[in-house]
């Protein structure tokens, strides 16, 4: 019985995860390393990877700062009524339930070129949809719950007594945050950052809708993979996908490490 279950587990993992992963690698290296290099050094591939990199950096920074602050408010703030806190707390999860495509659509509907706000901004020379800002906003929307959901439980668990102790010793909020709160939530935040990076790296649906997928302009790594597949250029697609997959595996290792550190502290 035991053997059967373990065997089944191995089989599922092999079929669903390990073999596909190898397939990507072998697909990318179908024409040898040269083919892979060629696929990756296409100008559109370099540009797409760079776009993804830029979005990852911007989104991670913004999501971390706002996510941590919002978590602190949702757990601690005495100026928010508990019922409002509860309401906001459940709203935090909503982006989980929203299909990325719909997330992208929301932004197009709100600030797209056909809307009042969009037209106004465009008049002022700021382009949001079909440009970087829209892609960043779409990704921020999708990644929003990740940081909050990592940090809030840690804050709840450590309680507010250490912070109050610091207050009684004369420390004001910033000093208290950096010296007392931050060391306790650090690993939770790092875990949240890793999750945010992974999700941003892989975000596809929302970005596809908002960006318009314009080559060498708003194309990201994932939307390039999509376009390559649509153009039946599976080899090139596999090359970019392999880079993304390698990053994901790296992030997964980082996640495991952060999880372990978080448990220790």
């Amino acid at each position: 019985m035991r053997r059967l279950w373990i065997g089944l587990t191995y089989a599922v993992f092999l079929l669903l995860i390990v073999i596909p992963l190898f397939k990507i690698a072998s697909g990318a290296l179908q024409d040898g390393v040269g083919g892979l290099v060629e696929a990756l050094t296409r100008p559109e591939a370099i540009h797409a990877l760079m776009m993804t990199g830029i979005i990852v950096v911007i989104v991670t920074v913004i999501n971390t700062v706002f996510g941590v602050m919002l978590s602190i408010y949702l757990v601690r703030a005495p100026w928010l009524h508990p019922r409002i806190k509860g309401l906001l707390n459940s709203i935090v999860d909503l982006p989980y339930a929203v299909s990325p495509v719909i997330g992208g659509l929301m932004i197009v509907l709100l600030v797209g070129p056909d809307t009042v706000i969009g037209a106004m901004l465009e008049g002022a020379g700021v382009k949001i949809v079909y440009a970087l800002p829209g892609m960043v906003i779409a990704t921020l929307f999708v990644t929003f719950p990740l940081m909050v959901r990592e940090v809030m439980p840690v804050l709840q668990e450590i309680g507010s007594q250490q912070e109050e102790a610091a207050t009684m010793l004369g420390s004001y909020s910033w000093y208290t945050f950096w010296k007392v709160t931050w060391p306790s939530i650090r690993w939770g935040v790092i875990y949240g950052v890793v999750l945010t990076v992974a999700r941003t790296l892989g975000e596809f649906g929302a970005v596809l809708v908002v960006s318009g997928n314009i080559m060498n302009l708003t194309q990201t790594a994932t939307t390039l993979v999509y376009q390559d597949v649509e153009n039946f250029n599976v080899l090139a697609a596999s090359g970019v996908a392999l880079v993304l997959a390698a990053f994901s595996v790296g992030l997964l290792l980082l996640m495991e490490w952060a999880k372990k550190r978080r448990e220790v502290h």
Partner: peptide
């Protein structure tokens, strides 16, 4: 490895199945 599908871009997942 359980978490890999979360870490992997979904488009890459689709491509893997396609391949």
């Amino acid at each position: 490895l359980v978490d890999l599908p979360f870490a992997l871009p979904t488009a890459v997942g689709g491509l893997m199945i396609l391949l």
